[in-house]
């Protein structure tokens, strides 16, 4: 079942002009329009995500992968001009056009975002449990004991010591904070989780354990995910299929192992070779 179907997603910073799209992208070698100076962060991006599937998006910083992910997660940047269509299973119309309340409901329930920066996603003054509980409480949970039990369950699933549940989030290690973010994202059993650079700020050994935990939970719960990373290793570990982005355009897509081992596009070949 196709969960999410995105067509022609575009994010432009600046006034934009008629020639923006032709003058930017992979062939033009830039994401900035030489005529009007606008930055075409991403454009002409089409993708679909099926239930339970993990889609990776790789690219260097500035390639447009985060802009794309933000649109999929229904984040709105007031400075950006956006366009495109996101259709989502069980919902009428274009998700990019929905009102605040529908968007809020979707973000509380069906679509969860794990922010790249922990600060954007967590309140450090709340307890770790409180940060996870917020999602449940926003969704209308009103029994304290039910909330506690669910938070405990999510802590266990994401391998956070349950006895730290009532400590302020600011006292948690980076890896634990990332786990709290993931626990929070999973709280209301979403159908889709968008992870933006899930390894940012984590030690290599911690990265591996967080990613492994996410992969296990993702499979067990059958939740679909979009994983954005500049790190090919992250995407290789998590994603079934991968999009490669450059200068705001998707330049290649396919099975993750195929993209890694038999890259077709010149840029992908360079990217792979620069890692291995």
């Amino acid at each position: 079942m196709t969960l999410l179907d995105a067509e022609g997603l575009r994010t432009v910073y600046g006034d934009g002009c008629d020639r923006c799209l032709d003058a930017t992208g992979d062939r033009a070698g830039t994401n900035q329009c030489p005529h009007c100076g606008s930055v075409v962060a991403c454009a002409e991006a089409d993708l679909t995500v099926r239930a339970g599937e993990v889609l990776g998006i790789v690219g260097e910083s500035g390639s447009g992968k985060s802009s794309l992910a933000e649109q999929l997660a229904l984040e709105r940047d007031p400075d950006a001009e956006t366009d495109g269509v996101v259709r989502y299973a069980g919902h009428e119309g274009n998700l990019l056009d929905v009102d605040y309340e529908t968007r809020h409901d979707l973000r509380t329930g069906d679509i969860a975002l794990v922010h790249q920066h922990i600060r954007d996603g967590l309140n450090p003054e709340f307890t770790g449990g409180g940060n996870v509980a917020e999602k449940l409480l926003s969704a209308g949970w009103r029994s304290f004991e039910d909330v506690r039990a669910r938070v405990r369950e999510l802590f266990e699933a994401t391998e956070i010591p349950v006895d730290r549940m009532d400590d302020p989030t600011s006292t948690y290690s980076g890896g634990m904070q990332r786990r709290v973010q993931i626990a929070r994202a999973l709280a209301n059993d979403p159908e889709l989780v968008v992870l933006d650079e899930p390894t940012t700020g984590l030690d290599v050994s911690v990265q591996a354990r967080v990613l492994d935990m996410f992969r296990r939970v993702q499979r067990e719960k059958g939740v679909a995910a979009v994983v954005v990373s500049h790190d090919l290793g992250v995407v290789r570990l998590l994603a079934d299929r991968t999009l490669v982005m450059r200068h705001g355009r998707v330049v290649e897509s396919g099975l993750t192992d195929r993209v890694m081992e038999d890259p077709h596009h010149e840029y992908t070949q360079t990217l792979i070779n620069s890692v291995i």
Binding site: T108, G130, A133, K135
Partner: peptide
């Protein structure tokens, strides 16, 4: 959208 206030109450009970 009063989720934040509910967290405040939750933290209070904790």
């Amino acid at each position: 959208n009063y989720g934040k206030m509910w967290v405040h109450l939750y933290e209070n009970v904790v």
